[in-house]
Amino acid sequence: MMRLLVTRPAPDAGAQAERLRGLGHEPIVSPLLKVEFLNPELPALSCVQALIVTSRNGLRALEVAGKLESARALPLFAVGSASAKRARELGFEEVYEGPGTAEGLAPLIVSKCVPARGLLLHLAGERIAFDLKGALEGQGFEAAQPALYRTLAASSFSTEAHEALVAGALEGVIVMSPATARAYMELVAAQGLGAAAAKPAYFCLSENVAAPLAALEGARIIVSPSPSEDDLLALARCKAAKC
């Protein structure tokens, strides 16, 4: 069993905490990002040949915008297993699952779609790690990438997380995105927690996620073999079992 810090935004933080409890860990929840949904003008879905989501927040944004019912009839390309699973739960029937990164999703989209059939609509956030629109346009497609949501960094750790970090009681931190890693580092610097933050292990979804944590001198940064939450949590389980 490990005491692990869960840093995802709500509601994903609660779901991840439950998974960790089921694996025998003790999660401490401190969301480091808050998702704020925007209200951009979207293209008419009748002109769209397929939707693209690189985060479950894109699907939540569709719900908030009241577009989910009409969108279900379209093929949907999901960045990875979690987004694909959520899309199917919401009633999408034609769901294509990518390898876990937007860059890796692009070839799958190109292989299944035809430029003449219409627009590709990426339900994106305000800040993107990979320009999927540009990659698709480079292959002759028309693509749109409106920002449907933004993430705002937390101004502090939760009280429980702060106390555990200061006391050296955290054994690991789960980090799922570069934005979360940046928010974590900003709080560590602002609160003078550099020495304390070097003690836990950091379980990161990818090398890009791990990059902002490199400034933590001496910290153990462990990167998942694939950008999958299942594989990442398996790493934590293995660490706890000393395998």
Rank of each mutant, 00 (worst) to 15 (best):
M1E: 14
M2D: 07
M2H: 06
M2R: 07
R3C: 02
L5D: 00
L5Q: 01
P9H: 09
R19T: 11
G22A: 09
H25C: 09
P27W: 08
P27Y: 10
P27H: 07
L32W: 04
L33N: 11
K34H: 14
N39E: 15
P40G: 10
E41Y: 01
L42C: 05
L45K: 04
C47Y: 06
V48I: 14
V48G: 13
Q49M: 07
L51T: 02
V53M: 12
S55I: 03
S55T: 09
L59R: 07
A61I: 06
A61E: 14
A61T: 08
L62T: 01
E63T: 03
E63Y: 03
V64W: 05
A65R: 06
G66F: 06
G66P: 04
R72P: 09
A73T: 12
A73K: 15
P75M: 06
F77V: 07
V79P: 05
V79N: 10
G80N: 09
S81Y: 03
A82M: 13
S83P: 07
A87C: 09
L90V: 01
L90C: 06
E93Y: 00
Y96S: 05
P99F: 08
G100H: 09
G100T: 08
E103G: 14
L105Y: 12
L105K: 06
L108K: 03
V110E: 13
V110I: 13
S111T: 01
K112A: 12
A116R: 10
G118M: 13
G118N: 12
G118I: 10
L120K: 02
L121C: 11
L123D: 02
A124N: 05
A124P: 07
G125Q: 09
R127I: 14
I128A: 13
D131G: 02
K133M: 12
K133Y: 14
K133A: 15
G134N: 05
E137W: 06
F141W: 02
F141K: 02
A143Y: 13
Q145P: 06
Y149I: 02
T151W: 04
L152S: 05
E160M: 03
A161D: 03
A161G: 10
A167T: 01
A169H: 10
L170T: 03
V173D: 01
V173G: 01
M176T: 12
M176F: 12
S177R: 06
S177K: 04
P178H: 08
A190H: 03
A190P: 02
G192H: 08
G192P: 08
G192R: 03
L193G: 11
G194P: 00
A198I: 02
K199M: 14
C204G: 05
L205N: 01
S206A: 11
N208Q: 13
V209R: 00
A210K: 00
L213G: 00
L213P: 00
E217I: 02
G218P: 06
A219G: 04
I221N: 00
I222L: 15
I222R: 10
S224R: 02
P225Y: 13
P227F: 06
S228K: 08
S228Y: 08
D231G: 00
D231R: 11
L232M: 14
L233P: 01
L233R: 04
A234M: 04
A236M: 14
A236W: 13
